[in-house]
Nucleic acid binder design. Structure first.
Lengths: 257, 257
DNA sequence: AAGTGGTCTAGACCACCTC
DNA sequence: AGGTGGTCTAGACCACTTG
């Protein structure tokens, strides 16, 4: 069918599930088929409601998941639009580089908006990860990372005060500051998981609350084995791919028998 | 404050944001502080509404995001409960192993529920990834992976018919079948991203629709360089961590100047 | 000022499970 | 049968942007 998704026909027929899911499917199909293209506006919610014969609450509910998954964008006072394609960026996981260097290598602009920067009393998590003493203070760098104007990640880095006594001196790349002090990490361990973004973090990344994000915890080491950096990052799930190459485990290459 | 989260006090005061977020924060705090422990039941929605002075719709909305993020579980006809802690499993990304082998190494049980298995006409995506000809058919293995009774992942593997002529013969580990045919992959490239799970996939994984999942696409190669397997997996975001070790890029170890 | 999305309400019916 | 969550409605007010 090449009909518009908002005709009242077909709604409420039994066996097709909840009405809000039926509407959601229609809109998703319209986007997938190209009937609705990037940047196109959808009718106002009240109009979608009257067109479909559904209530506005039900329309909003149908639209909601498409907003959360990044297919639609809503702007208060403005309207609902089909999201412009966000080109996925790939980051090679096997290389230990900083966000700044990574983007520069691709010829992309890098900006940061600082959320917080300073010396603090460490959290128990930071004491654990950085091996701090009870009297130590921790340097925290919290920022939103943007590339070509698009917010891509929230980065929360913690370092011992001894490693970074003046966090306010970090302007762009943390790693370049560390390198200037002869403290560039050469090894790191990362843990990657997925999480639903809370309202605050979603706001920083300009996505809907509940949207999926990639959470990465990284602990970086000096050649000496000393821990130097503990960073928790949240990447936009719709804008970032991590790529990694795997090799077979040595002990499973050959089997007895 | 150690009050219960459902007292009407404090709601509606200005400057605290929407009511549903205030309720959400109260419940989340109660869980974080241990006032609500794993398995505890929350009052019925109608009761939470009358206790707080909010409408049931608003209560549901506040609860909704906590369900999506896996902190609460709702069972129709039964109630709303604090989720039991799901122990996160770590998988070393640098090793190329199968789900079956990976779990066996940890001493965990492995089960699979088949969703689909057979020979099909390939999708364009499969033609690209596997380098198929127009007349080739593709073997598809779709299953839900469970460990100790808990669904952890959906795995959708595609292989050329020439590699796996009899997909119905795969019972547990795909890799062990390939190895028996002398076709075990030794190298793979993975792309990792995050996504909100749709209703169907969320159902397979027994999480709420919209919950965050880890999406992994993997292409595996034989020693000869031939592509052997193209797999798309969705892991529960709340149950899986991927761990990876990074090393510094050779060309950034030393810099001129 | 008019229009948009964001929030909230009171009340209803249904499907499911067994409180 | 009674309680629970799941869905849906009509209508209201607010905050924001400017179609």
């Amino acid at each position: 069918m090449t009909d518009d998704p908002f005709s009242p026909r077909g709604f409420s027929e039994t066996g097709h599930g909840p009405l809000y899911l039926q509407l959601q499917r229609r809109i998703a199909d319209a986007i997938a088929s190209g009937r609705l293209g990037p940047g196109d506006s959808l009718p106002p919610e009240r109009e979608m409601a009257s067109m479909t014969g559904l209530s506005r609450v039900t329309v909003r509910r149908g639209v909601q998941e498409l907003v959360a998954s990044g297919q639609l964008v809503q702007r208060r006072g403005s309207g609902t639009f089909v999201a412009r394609k966000v080109e996925r960026l790939e980051q090679a996981l096997s290389l230990l580089t900083s966000f700044t260097e990574d983007m520069a290598r691709r010829g992309r602009s890098v900006e940061s908006r600082w959320i917080g920067r300073g010396l603090f009393a460490p959290s128990p998590e930071e004491v654990m990860a950085l091996g701090l003493g009870s009297a130590d203070r921790v340097a925290r760098l919290e920022r939103v990372r943007l590339s070509d104007g698009l917010p891509l990640a929230i980065e929360r880095a913690s370092l011992s005060q001894q490693v970074l006594p003046r966090p306010d001196q970090v302007e762009s790349s943390l790693y370049s500051v560390l390198e200037a002090r002869g403290l560039r990490p050469v090894r790191a361990v990362q843990r990657i998981s997925a999480t639903n973004l809370g309202a605050a973090d979603a706001g920083f990344l300009q996505v809907a609350p509940g949207a999926a994000g990639l959470r990465i915890e990284r602990i970086s080491y000096l050649p000496s084995g000393q821990v130097i950096e503990f960073t928790r990052s949240l990447y936009r799930g719709d804008a970032y791919d991590f790529a990694v190459e795997l090799k077979s485990a040595p002990d499973t290459d050959r089997r007895p028998g």
